[in-house]
Design a protein around this nucleic acid. Structure first.
Lengths: 354, 354
DNA sequence: CTGAAAGCGCTAACAA
DNA sequence: TTGTTAGCGCTTTCAG
């Protein structure tokens, strides 16, 4: 079927060794011979099989990318960054998604390992407690986490805790006091938990009482009644929502529109991720922006450095700067002065609104 | 470094053939032996190298996916569909992007061919005139186009001409007469041209005069002055814009907001692609919706059918149904009755507004 | 400068 | 049931 080096050799009238040299070390073969071999290669449309080569222990130039989902642009934006550098540097990308399921994460890593990828870029559910990552540390391949914010492992991320704090402080500066955090599924994401911790920190700094994050069903067309109850419960209702990511923020805003709450007049919204589409919304979505493509590119560079022999410790908890996009979804509100009475709030307390 | 079948054989005290059988045909080996071999495999964390296998001519279970860009969700939505089935069926995906550049399209195909992919799913700039596709037809691998709407080659798409016509008829039914089509770059996409033809057809059907598509720079933050001039030129300005894709529509809407034109009060907008995010906008983006994930899944199924031996002719120009999303970006306008005087307009004429 | 031959990891006859 | 061996496409000594 596909021509092999033998076919080329026969066609050109030389040995397979000469053909191999013509391909891999052209300067070592007689120009006339070289020309004939090249002619044969073209005539047969020969492409050296990577398998023969890799069997000899050559590099695969193959990198595995493991993402939770392609439905959230935050990951495809990262993937774009990765793809840019991979293409430029002649690497191939093998892509797998996990839907945040541990079993699929496991299977993806197994599959990619079996393919002999030279390295792995991945976003996992929970970086610190993940047994698979210990396995990767021990048995390879080399990897870099992306968007998992941990000091324990090679990773590229923003400082989720600090970024969330800043965002919430900004809300507070705009006069908000009753600020609620919404998350897709806290248990599914270390990032969501870190962001909630940042939220809690900022709240306490201002003498406010943080509330537990409210979990939202991403896929539902409408907000659940229990959620709506939280958002619309009279004078003590929150005036601002901090959403653990932009996609969630957009889903929530749709839900609010359906019950005729206006953003930002009736409710301010702050997202997290800085999705490109957020800027295209009307009003533009306020967000704590992570530089997603840069994170992808940086993860690639850290991985290449590791492959080049750099020690893992050099890449532990690599942090990129975040920025605040103060979009139109946040309204300033006039408010009673800060209630400094609530000094009993301690770190670790997560109490509901009174 | 990584253990081989030999290491396992030595560790277990059997021959490599037995190990191979233990892996590939467990029922043909003595249970006791099997147990020992498996123990050795676990102990050494052995994973059979795909190269040895594939060298033997086995299937690679590798599919190449070639997309113009990951920046437009229409493609990542398709990719999601592909990924769903690929994962379920135990195939691996190799991903490359082309940025609509012929040279990168060529390189992607070469690379994937060299990797011995069993098939290719791709979206190209122009399906009918593409020399690379003739090459694929002649020399493999098997492929299916995605979103390229052509009867000449294996492809999965919607009927762009008909879909665009319907969309424009809907605008006309809402009272619009001066309808302009906007495109990213007509020359870069056969789809944009087909959609423009559909637009022209619908306009003429109603006795209206189609205008040439106006090309928009996707990446500019603001609309070009020449474009704005077209959109705001006094009483003859268009009342509705048909954008060749949703991402463009969103960019255009942002441009309009910047010059204080309101959507839909001052300008109606119709997109094409049915991006999921479009539904999250306020107001929701009206769009001619292509079932992107289904297109991805369908392309996968057609490809598998071809790999399974089905003839290419079975998959030529496979068309999926589109739907119309009459979102909030379209306003009905009262208007003078249809001007049926313009019967001189013929197919093929593309004249500007008078 | 070129060719013969070994060997990479694996599977599949064929033998035992 | 298990082992021996040839060979998949390629690169790389080592001779010539």
């Amino acid at each position: 079927m596909t021509p092999t080096i033998k076919d080329v050799a026969a066609h050109a009238g030389f040995s397979i060794a000469t053909v191999s040299r013509a391909i891999n070390a052209p300067h070592t073969v007689n120009p006339v011979t070289l020309a004939k071999v090249r002619e044969a290669i073209d005539a047969l449309k020969f492409h050296p099989s990577p398998f023969g080569r890799q069997l000899r222990g050559e590099r695969t130039r193959l990198i595995g990318v493991v993402l939770p989902t392609l439905a959230n642009p935050v990951f495809t934006e990262c993937l774009q960054g990765i793809d840019e550098l991979a293409a430029a540097q002649g690497f191939r990308l093998m892509l797998m998604t996990t839907l945040y399921e541990e079993q699929r994460e496991r299977r993806a890593i197994e599959t990619l390992r079996a393919q002999r990828v030279e390295g792995l870029i991945l976003t996992v559910t929970d970086a610190d407690t993940h047994p698979l990552l210990d396995d990767l540390d021990d048995n390879g391949p080399l990897y870099v986490l992306m968007h998992n914010d941990t000091k324990q492992r090679p990773s590229v991320s923003v400082d989720n805790h600090e970024a969330a704090s800043e965002g919430v402080r900004m809300l507070i500066a705009h006069g908000h006091r009753r600020i609620l955090m919404l998350a897709g599924s806290l248990s599914a994401s270390d990032r969501a938990r870190q962001r909630h911790a940042g939220y809690s920190h900022a709240m306490r700094q201002s003498g406010l009482i943080p509330a537990p994050a409210l979990e939202i069903d991403f896929n539902a067309d409408e907000l659940a009644p229990s959620v709506l109850a939280h958002l619309t419960s009279g004078p003590q209702r929150p005036t601002a929502l901090f959403c653990s990511n932009d996609l969630l923020a957009m889903v929530v805003m749709r839900g609010l529109r359906r019950v005729h709450m206006r953003v930002p007049q009736d409710m301010s919204i702050l997202g997290f991720d800085g999705l490109a589409v957020g800027e295209l919304l009307a009003p533009p979505l306020a967000s704590i922006c992570t530089p997603n493509r840069a994170i992808g590119r940086s993860a690639w560079q850290r991985l290449m450095a590791r492959i080049g022999g750099e020690h893992a410790s050099e890449t532990l908890g690599f942090t990129l700067p975040h920025t605040l996009r103060e979009g139109g979804t946040i309204a300033a509100i006039s408010n009673a002065p800060l209630v400094h009475a609530v000094h009993t709030a301690r770190d670790g307390d997560d109490v509901d609104f009174p």
